[in-house]
């Protein structure tokens, strides 16, 4: 009766995207928080673009980028034998781009909040930049990591437009919760729509509630 497929797929997508973005977003945010390069504003603007652009613009460009005859699309087919469009990895890639600012911006401000003095003090004691990051900045930015991960996870959970455009609605691979709900509403199947929407609503609330509770119980003394 209740289809768990879309729910499981959505959770899997959100988890994969969050982990990937932690690896991509952390160095990027770290670089943005330290650099004095002229490129900084350029990269910052680029990172923030998904906040402003409608999903239709990104979806349209990705559809063109992913197609099997494009450089990226054909490269992907050559190494995996699968096309990027209409595949799970395709929607992962789309979500990574779409959720990038939700990871990078909280991390960047967390890193910046640690302050220059403390970093310079560490550096003057001959700590390498990597040491400074791992031993000082990262532990002091725990809450930033938590916020960024939650925002990324939640944002991917609710993603709709891009996946609708590049996913191809394939059960088990690209048919996530939001798409399944859209389909049920469209076919006037309000029962199923209610069940799935209710699940997403309760689940999203629980995740956020747990995080805020955790944050209150374990306040971090960060400047």
């Amino acid at each position: 009766m209740v289809e768990f497929g879309p729910l499981i797929l959505t959770l899997k997508l959100s988890l994969v995207v969050t982990v990937l973005l932690l690896f991509i977003g952390t160095p990027l945010a770290w670089w943005l928080s330290c650099t004095r390069s002229k490129l900084k504003s350029f990269i910052e603007a680029l990172t923030a673009l998904p906040l402003v652009l409608p999903p239709t613009v990104l979806g349209f460009y990705l559809l063109i980028l992913f197609n099997p005859t494009s450089p990226i699309g054909s490269f992907w087919i050559n190494i995996t034998g699968e096309s990027l469009s209409f595949s799970f990895f395709g929607i992962v890639l789309a979500s990574v781009i779409y959720s990038l600012p939700f990871m990078v911006q909280p991390l960047q401000s967390a890193f910046e909040n640690v302050g220059f003095e403390i970093r310079e003090a560490a550096a003057s004691l001959r700590a390498s930049p990597l040491d400074v990051f791992i031993k000082i900045v990262a532990p002091l930015s725990k809450r930033g990591f938590l916020t960024a991960s939650i925002l990324t996870f939640a944002h991917t959970l609710g993603e709709f437009g891009i996946i609708l455009m590049v996913g191809g609605n394939i059960p088990g691979r690209t048919k996530v919760m939001s798409i399944a709900i859209y389909e049920h509403v469209e076919t006037l199947d309000y029962n199923q729509a209610h069940i799935l929407s209710g699940m997403l609503l309760v689940f999203s609330f629980c995740v956020l509630f747990l995080i805020y509770t955790f944050n209150r119980r374990h306040p971090l003394n960060v400047g």
């Binding site: 559809l63 063109i64 992913f66 197609n67 099997p68 005859t69 494009s70 699309g73 096309s83 469009s85 209409f86 609708l164 455009m165 191809g168 609605n169 394939i170 859209y182 469209e186």
Partner: peptide, 19 residues
């Protein structure tokens, strides 16, 4: 090997963009 669009408009787009 089947992919689905929400309507024939989107389906036409899949071919037009080579996907």
């Amino acid at each position: 090997r089947t992919v689905y669009g929400q309507n024939v408009g989107q389906v036409y787009g899949f071919v037009k963009t080579g996907n």
